[in-house]
């Protein structure tokens, strides 16, 4: 299907007919080939670097003065810090504190990644399942490793809910195991699907604006409204990803 529509888009591409999926296309900026691996620096990589730069600038530039009474920029940086710190403390407690830098990076990376994707002409790396799944896998493997490191083999009790009748145990363990294993999948898919659909919708509507001429103000109005909605979703999905990671971390630390 991708092949077919993309050729269609190419055929009708007299300027208007931008295909909704074209924005997700990767293109190498600096081709790098190591052995069989294609490790090219792509537009996606570029926007990852930009996200890191934005976060670093946001966190480091205003705090240079180490002001006791923060200015606007420092207040914003502190707010981001506090949001993540509270999120982690509320869901994972005190022991979660040592994983704060990771959770902070996760949240800010996804937040800036999602938000900068709304800039026209940019690239949204969080709309790629490989990226979201890689991050989800790190969270999944990390929390599982923490669980075993803290509770040893006893972490397996996590899959056997207490107080359940023994005859139902095999079924319960199976269900718990499946739900546990589906965590990274749901985590990755949720973010990926939200970003994909939102951006595809924006692009489709934008296509209508040009095609309809004067009547294009109608999809334009919709476009404005949906862009606002997308800003909300961008923030919300980053938050959801981060808070679910915190909850998984809590499961690993405290076993419910």
């Amino acid at each position: 299907m991708a092949e077919q529509t993309s050729t269609n888009g190419g055929d009708g591409g007299g300027g208007f007919g931008l295909h909704p999926m074209e924005q997700f296309e990767l293109s190498p900026i600096v081709p790098i080939q190591i052995g069989d691996l294609n490790l090219s620096f792509t537009n996606s990589s570029l926007w990852m670097v930009i996200a890191v730069a934005i976060i670093s600038a946001l966190m480091m530039l205003p705090t240079r003065g180490r002001a006791l009474i923060p200015g606007r920029a420092q207040a914003a940086a502190e707010m981001l810090y506090e949001v993540v710190a509270n999120m982690l403390r509320d869901s994972a407690g005190k022991e979660g504190r040592q994983y704060f830098p990771f959770v902070f990076c996760l949240f800010s990376f996804l937040l800036i990644g999602n938000l900068q994707g709304l800039i026209p002409g940019s690239f949204t790396f969080t709309s790629h399942i490989v990226v979201t799944f890689a991050l989800a896998a790190v969270v999944f493997l990390g929390t599982t490793a923490i669980g075993f490191a803290r509770h040893g083999i006893g972490f397996l009790k996590f899959f056997a809910p207490e107080g359940a009748p023994s005859w139902s145990l095999p079924l319960l363990v199976l269900i718990e195991l499946i739900s546990y294993l589906s965590r990274p999948v749901s985590l990755a898919l949720r973010l990926f699907a939200n970003m994909l659909v939102g951006h595809a919708l924006l692009k489709t509507l934008a296509g209508f604006v040009f095609v309809l001429g004067i009547a294009g103000v109608i999809p334009l109005a919709g476009l404005v409204a949906i862009t606002a909605l997308e800003v909300l979703i961008a923030i919300l999905q980053a938050y959801v990803f981060a808070i679910l990671s915190c909850i998984y971390l809590n499961d690993a630390l405290h076993m419910h």
Binding site: L26, P28, I32, L37, N38, L39, S40, F41, T42, S44, S45, M48, V49, A51, V52, I55, S56, P101, F102, C105, S108, F109, F125, H128, V130, V131, A134, L135
Partner: peptide, 15 residues
């Protein structure tokens, strides 16, 4: 491969 590689590079850098 490229996506994962650059994700690791940037995320580790950020971390």
């Amino acid at each position: 491969a490229s996506q994962i590689f650059w994700l690791i590079v940037t995320f580790v850098g950020l971390y």
